[in-house]
Structure formats: C-alpha cells, structure tokens
Design a binder for these strands. Structure first.
Length: 196
DNA sequence: AACGACTACAACCGCTCTGCC
DNA sequence: GGGCAGAGCGGTTGTAGTCGT
C-alpha cells in the first residue's frame, strides 16, 4: 500500500542485474522485512512492494527454476481442485515454487488443459440420474486449515467442496506424491497436537 | 526474410488483512 | 475504535521469445 507513491516516482519494468544485486545485498544484511526501508537503503528507485515481489519470486534462495514436472503438475491440479485459486497455499505445498509461478503455469497451461478435457468429456456425458445423484452424495465439505505466514502461524478455516473419488484416486500415484500426501497429513496432525 | 499470432512469464495493480499507535 | 503503514494475495497486463505462414 504505497500511499506515498503518488508523491514519488518509482521506476517500473524489468529489473536489471545491478538492481538485483543491490536488493540481495541489503536483504542479506537487514533481512526481508520493511520493504520500503530496504528499497531506500539499497538506493533503488523501486517501491517496497516491487522489491518484495522481486525477492520472493526471483532472488530468494531455494527457488526451483525450470520446468514444472509431471508430479508437480498433478499436485497443482489436485490442490487447485481442493483449494481453488489459493496460489500461495498451493505454492506452500510445492517446495521451491512461488505462487506467481504456479499462477502463471495454471493460466498458461493447466486452464487450457482442463477446458480441453471438459470439452472431451462433454460428449460422452450420458450418465444416468442415479449415478449423478450418487456422486453428489459423495461430495464432502471439509475444513482446510490455512497456515498463513502473514498471521504468524495462526490459522483460519475455509470450507471447501471436493470430489472424494477424484481427489483420492491414487491408482496411478507415484511415490513422490504419496510421500507428499503423508507429509500433508503429518503436518496437519502436528498442528492439531500443538493445539491440544 | 518479414510479419503476425501465439505463448510464457515477469511485473504491476488493486484490494484485503494485520499490527501498531 | 479509528487511522495509518506494512505485508500479502490474486487478477491482470506488458513484453520478449517462439512459431507458423
């Protein structure tokens, strides 16, 4: 919320290697907080918001760059089905990937794939009413705990609907994904333990 | 080779939430 | 309780690179 941005002109557009270097240096010394101060200290004519975004999406260590693997793609699909457009939450389950990256990947790859799939599946959609009714009965509403970094570990609850059969269809699951599922469950269990 | 269409992704924008005074 | 600033999120835009004609 750069309310002073009207008064001061910030530069926009692509970051230069020099800007990246300055930003990284200041963050290494002062840490990744008070972005406005960081921008000023680094002598950058960028707004704090821009610095934060650059750091989180590009300069931060442990960022995994390059193609999204099949496993990761599958994970994104599942998580999106579960959480919707909660990119930061989805990114939280994919180490090294950023919300922006996942969002972009979704918009450019997966949304198209899904549309294609929907088109294909529309044709043979001649299910009986009974089958549809049964499927409806199998949809459940679950409460998803959100571990948000912004609220200091506090968690809120969101009620979401998902299709049990599809989400828990691990028939062609690789070991990597199964590992994630157990870790997901473990981390949730850990939170519950902490509470009690 | 030239040009337009398409794609991928970095960056921006607007909004909400949270914490502090 | 209200105002302000910082932080974070999701949607959208801009543009460089690639591809097809």
């Amino acid at each position: 919320m750069e309310k002073s941005s009207a008064a001061k002109e910030y530069s926009k557009g692509a970051w230069t290697p020099e800007e990246d270097r300055k930003l990284a240096e200041v963050i290494a010394v002062h840490g990744a907080k008070r972005w406005k101060t960081i921008a000023a200290t680094a002598g950058l004519s960028r707004c704090g918001k821009s610095c934060r975004l650059r750091w989180l999406n590009y300069l931060r260590p442990n960022i995994k760059r390059g193609n999204i693997t099949d496993q990761e793609e599958d994970l994104i699909l599942r998580l999106h089905k579960l959480l919707g457009n909660r990119w930061s939450l989805i990114a939280g389950r994919l180490p090294g990937r950023t919300d922006n990256e996942i969002k972009n990947y979704w918009n450019s790859h997966l949304s198209k794939k899904i549309k294609q799939k929907e088109k294909q599946s529309e044709a043979p959609k001649r299910e009986g009413k009974e089958a549809q009714r049964r499927r409806g009965a199998e949809r459940v509403s679950v409460e998803v705990r959100e571990e948000s970094s912004s609220n200091g570990g506090e968690e809120s609850k969101t009620s979401v609907d998902f299709d049990v059969d599809e989400f828990f269809d691990f028939s062609n699951e690789s070991s990597l994904n199964l590992e994630w599922v157990s870790r997901f469950l473990e981390s949730d269990k850990g939170i519950c333990d902490e509470r009690s």
